[in-house]
Design a protein around this nucleic acid. Structure first.
Lengths: 361, 361
DNA sequence: CCGTTTCGTGTAAACGATTACACGCTATCC
DNA sequence: GGATAGCGTGTAATCGTTTACACGAAACGG
């Protein structure tokens, strides 16, 4: 493959001049520039990014390690990260950890060896020694979507506490008292926080907190299904199952369907994470939507700041409740209101729930 | 950051020896090996992949440019590619073309400059000069899922002709005569072929071929919705809409719902590509499933062959029909049989349609 | 008219690894 | 015991860029 040298020779200039033309890093006569460009075109020269990176110690590339590429939440996130990075002149290399610490480490290591300029990590449940090392060495690292306890790393994530509060209030208003939650791994902030928020919301709304209604999943569909099965096998099964992410909701849905149960008649379903197809399920699934675009965008901005060695503040965005019909008919706006404890700091309407049109009519 | 030199100094050996230990490319005394390893650990040395790649002219990385990262078909594909590549010791860098030739070229260029060892490309509709160049230069390139006309590149893809034949036969058997198809871009093999197969199947089953029932979409949800709108606005709207990919099916579904139409009562729906949530739509969507895992796996294998400069044959796998309920109740296995022309070479049961359990009960 | 900028260009030294080649030492074989 | 092979190790060239530095010519100011 042709290199600068060949181009230089053909254009009758030095390699330095070629480089100057290509990066316009210094003024060059219009005439030589033309000759160089012609030579480049003629040889079909493509600069060797590897050599350039070695010399400049910069790859204009950021790494993104996501939890699970089959999870629409993460693909949307990847998309957002990608867009923002591209517009800043960076490429994104995606690694799929598949929620496995081993795979995560594999990618972190590979990306680090490939000398990405920065790393966006949605950490898996376990704090691996590798991640601890990287944090200690203070490389440009930003956590996305999740934090790990005891690790001081800038993080961009969404907080669903308020939305979960609204959801539980909504459920209480519909007359439900037995509500179960299928959480993610407790080590993950997204697992722990959602559980805590859920329990707090139960208390705030005067609903019982039963340990057997607290299932621990792993954010994958299979665990959602297994948890749903255990819940439904309980002597007194819950009236509503709230899944901690969209995949576990899918799993729960599978299990509910397999048993031939009616939603929300026999059991209601709600999900953390909103995905496009929730609208088309029968009935449409009530969900908590995260500001995915924003999450991705801000994470990239934060990372670029860190790459520029500027300090960055952690960012926490708010998730919001989207009420549909899978937990029961919301019914007319009045009614049931007396049953419900008003959500934290909400007005008479019960907070600014987003109410979607309830389908055709 | 520490380099081989530092390690060498600390271990009291030469850089060559360090390299030998790290790649065990030559025998080294057990004792020196230990010293080197100790030094590596102490310094937290991480080899510089950029430098290594420059020297060895190999990156152990393949590029994958997909059509659209929000399309579950492609993410599943990416997942499969990823798995296979990893087990062969390669990393995958994913580029998201977003079905735009410009973006595709951006990634092809970037990946080529980053000197990936090979490139897997799901080409967008247009044949860009860049792609033409790359093909001409004969770099290790494999097309995945799609071909482009007139370009001689090894390709791994699925053929849905037979499955589409079965689908149309299935529709005919259910008594439908007015069937519309929303195709992808005609320049893409996946667009063109599916349309041709559809038209042929119509003819084979004695159904009318009406030009106004042939909509051209672009594989994105919005175009599916727009096409569905046009079809439903026709003086004589189709009885079934068959979408050329899962995103356009989602769009069509949106439009059908927005109009408050019943499926399959008012209009039936079928989709090319099967995705997990199709099972949970009301009613579950009849679809044509591609062997995604296999596609990804074989594509990687083909690419590795090309990287090793061995010749590879194009591979064509078969898609298969998955009958659900969105085009009408399949009903008992007998009946309606007299109405239907038997699909090409099918037995009395109408071919080996996969019939899924029709939901609960 | 001569010093001093300014401008365009070239020469050569990095960047951090791998690896061909050379070298000294020990064991082996006649 | 001396030639020889084999083993472990070190020295230095190399990969393809960017860029600090130097240099000659032209322009400019006093």
């Amino acid at each position: 493959m042709a290199g600068v040298k060949d181009v230089a020779r053909l254009a009758g200039v030095s390699v330095a001049t070629v480089s100057r033309v290509l990066n316009d890093s210094a003024p060059v006569t219009e005439e030589t520039r033309a000759r160089v460009l012609a030579a480049v075109a003629e040889l079909g020269y493509r600069p060797n990014g590897v050599a350039r990176s070695l010399r400049t110690d910069t790859t204009r590339t950021v790494g993104l390690v996501i939890g699970d590429i089959l999870n629409p939440f993460f693909t949307e996130l990847a998309r957002a990260v990608e867009d923002e990075a591209r517009s800043a002149g960076y490429s994104v290399v995606i690694g799929n950890a598949d929620e496995r610490p081993g795979r995560q480490d594999h990618y972190v290591r590979t990306l680090l060896e490939q000398r990405v300029d920065g790393l966006l990590l949605c950490p898996t449940a376990e704090i691996t020694p590798l991640v601890r090392d990287v944090v200690r060495d203070g490389g440009p690292l930003v956590f996305l979507d999740r934090t790990l306890p005891g690790l001081d790393v800038p993080t961009v994530r969404a907080d669903g506490t308020a939305a979960i509060g609204e959801l539980v209030a909504h459920l209480a208003r519909l007359g439900h008292r037995r509500v179960a939650f299928v959480s993610g791994p407790a080590l993950l902030s997204t697992g722990r926080e959602r559980t805590e928020a859920f329990v707090a919301a139960l208390r705030a709304n005067g609903l019982p907190v039963r340990p057997e209604y607290l299932e621990a999943g792993d954010f994958q569909a299979a665990s959602g299904r297994a948890s749903a099965a255990r819940l439904l096998d309980l002597p007194e099964p819950p009236e509503v199952i709230f899944a901690g992410d969209n995949l576990m909701a899918l799993g729960a849905l599978d299990e509910i369907r397999a048993r031939g149960l009616a939603i929300p008649g026999d059991v209601g379903l709600a999900s953390y994470d909103d995905v496009p197809w929730f609208t088309h399920v029968d009935p449409p699934v009530t969900a908590i939507a995260q500001p995915v675009q924003d999450l991705g965008r801000r994470a990239v901005r934060a990372l670029l700041e860190r790459i520029a060695r500027r300090p960055v503040e952690p960012e926490v965005l708010a998730a919001r409740l989207v009420v549909r019909r899978s937990c029961g008919e919301p019914g007319p706006d009045r009614g049931a209101e007396d049953l419900a404890v008003r959500p934290l700091g909400a007005g008479p309407q019960g907070g600014d729930l987003t109410k979607e049109g309830s389908g055709p009519a």
